[in-house]
Design a protein around this nucleic acid. Structure first.
Lengths: 191, 191, 191, 191
DNA sequence: GCATAAGCGAGACGGTACGTCAGGTCTTACG
DNA sequence: CGTAAGACCTGACGTACCGTCTCGCTTATGC
């Protein structure tokens, strides 16, 4: 990623950029998505409102930039030896991400906004965090390359629905889900 | 529903109630959830803002009341003869609901809000539209009574995730999903 | 001036109106016209910005409304017995108004704005404070009815120019100006 | 005006200076004084904002520098043979200046600003454009040397007031004003 | 010719006011 | 007492201009 700067001009302040991303992270945890405004992001970051608007259009954009790296990291799991163990570990990580991680809270908020804001929908479409991570683990566990998007939805969907619809995370059984997924992929021969 | 009224006083205007619910339906389609405000709900309904606030606290409440009946109806399917056909018909209805129906748009918007608004989360928890409809069809198709909440999530989840994450609905294959679900429930015996 | 109110609706708050007009008066003296913003008018008045904008479009409008009554009063003088005394008294009042009175400061500021803001020009044209007061005193002193607008300009102009161009008010001689004015009106017969 | 420069350094760009003064002239005519900002002066001149600020503090300063020479020129009139003709010609020029000339528009704007900005008032006091021109013509027409500042105010004031208060310039009668002025200066002997 | 120094265009920065909008509350008059 | 109307306070919105600041580059002087 080459720094592309036109001739002259004061360079962008890396300090300001980092402060804004940091502020967004903090505010999401402290006051939640709805109460997080461009105004208090700027104030919290010790940055002028204009500077925030210069680089990001909406709080969704900032939040996305602030959380996408964390998200990728939290959703990548070490190889565990067997497909079932791999998928179980992944689903464990997914539950943790969606229910415990600040980045996951950001992701849920963004998915929510995307339902009624096309700009946010486009933003999320630009980096399919959940889909990519699921395809990664599927590729490794099942040797599919590239892994099927539909298979990823089968793997992720039940857990995603469970959490997004507000159900109790402790009643989820990642290992059973992983087993069901594997069984669904390799059906009994008919008859 | 008996009208419970204290002594005297003008009775609640049924006309106003209906006008508000109607206005919310229309506005959701015309301007979307984000641009739908208490103010323009009131104006569209020809009702004073105070009257709206008297009976509902938030636009989420109105929207929920306005769409929950439609939602139940749209998600109930006729028995189709076989489990596979029943589930396929249900998933077809689910896709239609989430992507085409105004009530479905309302539901997606509310799920979104619920991610960062506990009040909306409680509201949705009070009537588990998707879960109930899935349990209904599972009960009928598989003879389970009451049907398992986890099974419902397995059935609904992949489609839910696919739509909520903004993927192309035409690339969904409800019949394959139904088949995978049935296979996942009844795994091959090991060996 | 009949109070015209549609059916219903909270009546305009006289308290808010008075507070705004008062605040403008105070601020003009304390911080001057340029530093007087809609924002600090509202804050000083203890009134919301929206309420200020509801009733006035610009600070010029508020200032005009706040000062026009004072202006009329300060520019009306008691009959003094002779035309020369009448006019001298008037010019004294005019100097005092333009250099000492808050209403006069407001008037000078508005005349200034009017030079590059047509809306302010229209506003001032709607009530010709200086012209009217001059015509009044001329009508009484000279028995002209209605008094000539050009005569008013002859009477007022020199003093107006003197003050507006920032000259020292103590070097003005109202009585001499009044005498010159009377002589200019009744010229020597030619020859 | 000797160029005073320390050792070394790039000399001031005459091109930039001229471009700014030119831009101010144009913008005053095109968008008016209020809409003329340091920002769009710089853009219009093709000059950086910093460069504008390096040489002038306010738009008033630039405007003054840009228009004062034009003003002096436009307010100087050829000798016409008689005092009445001289003064009439001058008042004609004055009306034209105040109502038609860009330099006059600049002058009116500056007079306006001076009412609530002491810096602008000082600026205008440094070169009494109207007063000087009036004293010049009076000196020539009446042989007074130096001409009286009060006499200048008597001559200029009525026209100045007429225009500044927004009255119709076509209803002015410069010759009558000149005659009144001359009569006012040489009153009938009492009795 | 090479350092020193100032001017210059570009454009980001922290501020602050703008005018608008929605939220939620209140005060009227009418039914 | 419910209702329509609409004024009220609050506070965020996104924009504009302010005046300052950092850049890289240019253009002079003077050693």
């Amino acid at each position: 990623m080459i720094e592309e700067r036109g001739r002259g001009g004061r360079p962008r302040s890396e300090r300001a950029r980092a402060a804004v991303l940091h502020a967004v992270d903090d505010l999401l945890v402290e006051v939640g998505y709805a109460a997080m405004t461009m105004k208090n992001i700027a104030e919290r970051a010790g940055v002028s409102r204009q500077t925030v608007y210069r680089w990001w259009s909406t709080k969704a954009e900032i939040l996305f930039e602030a959380s996408v790296l964390d998200a990728r990291e939290e959703l990548s799991v070490e190889p565990a030896g067997s497909p079932l163990d791999d998928l179980t570990a992944y689903l464990d990580a997914l539950v943790r991400f969606l229910t415990r991680s600040p980045a996951g809270a950001a992701y849920r908020a963004l998915i929510g906004e995307a339902q009624h804001d096309p700009a946010v929908a486009d933003l999320l479409a630009s980096r399919d965090v959940l889909g990519d991570s699921a395809r990664d683990v599927l590729g490794r566990a099942l040797g599919e390359d590239p892994a099927d998007e539909r298979a990823a939805a089968l793997l992720v969907g039940p857990t995603f629905f469970w959490i997004m619809s507000g159900r109790d995370r402790t009643r989820l059984a990642p290992r059973e889900l992983a087993r069901s997924f594997l069984d669904g992929l390799h059906p009994r021969p008919p008859g």
